[in-house]
Simulated scan of single mutants.
Amino acid sequence: MNFSLDEDQLAIKTMTRDFVNQEIIPQAREYDEKEEFPFEIHNKLREVGLYNFAVPEQFGGPGVDKISHALIVEELARGCAGVTTSVEANSLASYPILVGGTEEQKKKYFGIISSGGFSAFALTEPSAGSDVASLKTTAERVGDEYVLNGEKCFITNASYANYYTVLAKLKDSEGSKRFVALIVDRESEGVSVGPHEKKMGLRSSNTASVTFEEVRVPVANRLGEEGDGFKIFMKALSYARPMVGAQALGIAQGAYEEAVNYAKERKQFGQPISNFQGIQFMLADMAMEIEASRLLVQKAVWYVQQGTPNTKISSFAKCFASDTALKVAADAVQIHGGYGYIREYAVEKYFRDAKIMQIYEGTNQIQRVVIAKDILQD
């Protein structure tokens, strides 16, 4: 085992941290308050190569290894989880194409996002979140096309996506459990996007519903074979979940740093509150749980880097890191006292952003189901 980062990884981490300190943190609060999508920040991220990490280098990606990918995501989320979520939405939508796409599909659609476009992963529905088998969106084969009908909700980047990777149930028989994965172009007739959702956190990230009404999708836009859709999307999530852990880790790290700095500066009873053992124990627990999260995330990412994502380890990382993020953010607010409840202080935003980490890309209850199933199987 080697727990040290190599020179390239350290350089990427340092470069990303510097970028975040200079370009994201000074503006994060403003974009959060206005609930605006920060195109300027995204354009700058693209300029310095901090985008589309799931895209292979031969298709226009930055060519970073998966450990570096996780390091970048952690640093970005330390600055703003909303920005990071939209950056990673391009990665999430890329994984089904990476898993089940042809060379032609990869060249075309990775080319779109590598040249400044956005994409979106369209899985969740109003009546089907954790229970993917209950999807109501259907795809019916008609000649050389599929006719797509249904609604997807809570879709990141929905308003700005050039295309969507969509999971639909094949409309071939009553009660069908066969699924198909499709790439749907935004400009296709029958595609409509709802209003931007008003959210507790991640306010600088775009979230909206997408409706498909008699949308005709060429068979050439199918990923894998008919019936492979569910398998493709689940494998895609196994690639993505460690990066949710990395996002949660970044939120926790940012909240922790704010708490440490505040504890050193804030004086009560004639001395910094960092001198009090009650505060010291809180900071020690925060540091310990963050480091444990980091090790789990990096282990999960290592499996992805080997091309063999481990579902159980991915769930470990996503679940533990996101639980840690909320706990650390809550403790950071507590250490700030009343000031932690005021928007002027960064810990208030970290706290709001942390909650979604326990929910999206598989709730932490579902992660525990996945883990239990793995450890109890023969």
Rank of each mutant, 00 (worst) to 15 (best):
A246K: 06
P126C: 02
I97D: 10
A259M: 02
S238M: 04
N221F: 02
K152G: 06
E35A: 13
E30V: 11
Y109K: 02
S192F: 04
K231R: 14
K66F: 13
T137D: 03
Y160Q: 08
V87R: 01
K355R: 06
G362M: 09
E291L: 05
L148Y: 04
S192D: 11
K312V: 14
R266G: 00
A332M: 10
V64K: 03
F351Y: 14
T85C: 10
E361Y: 04
V215S: 07
L76G: 11
F59I: 01
Y239V: 08
R241I: 08
R178Y: 03
Q306L: 15
E103V: 06
G337W: 00
Y109N: 08
V328S: 12
L326A: 07
R17C: 12
V147R: 09
Y164D: 10
Q306I: 07
Q358T: 09
Q268M: 11
G79C: 10
T165V: 15
L148D: 08
R46L: 13
C153E: 14
I313V: 15
I97V: 15
N162Y: 07
I67L: 13
V147Q: 11
K235C: 10
E225Y: 12
R241W: 03
G254A: 12
N43A: 15
I67P: 02
E145C: 07
A317R: 02
A11I: 09
K136V: 09
A77F: 04
K44R: 15
G224P: 15
D6W: 02
A77P: 13
Y303Q: 07
P62M: 01
L45T: 14
Q268V: 12
R178L: 07
Y345F: 15
S209M: 05
L167Y: 00
I183D: 09
C153Y: 03
T16F: 06
T324P: 09
A168M: 06
E226Q: 11
F154W: 06
G338K: 05
Y360C: 07
A120I: 10
Q27E: 15
M282T: 12
F3G: 11
I41S: 04
T102V: 05
I273G: 11
F179K: 02
Y163H: 13
M288R: 08
I359L: 14
Y109H: 01
I25G: 03
Q253N: 11
E30Y: 05
R78E: 15
S134P: 01
A329S: 15
Q377I: 13
G82I: 05
N157R: 00
L326D: 01
L295P: 00
T16Y: 06
K106C: 14
E197H: 07
E7Q: 15
D374I: 10
G100E: 14
V73S: 09
P126H: 00
V83E: 11
I25H: 04
I366V: 15
Y160N: 09
D8I: 07
K106I: 08
V87N: 04
A158K: 02
A208G: 08
D6Q: 01
A354E: 05
E47V: 04
L326H: 03
H69L: 10
Q271C: 06
D172M: 03
E151C: 02
V184Q: 03
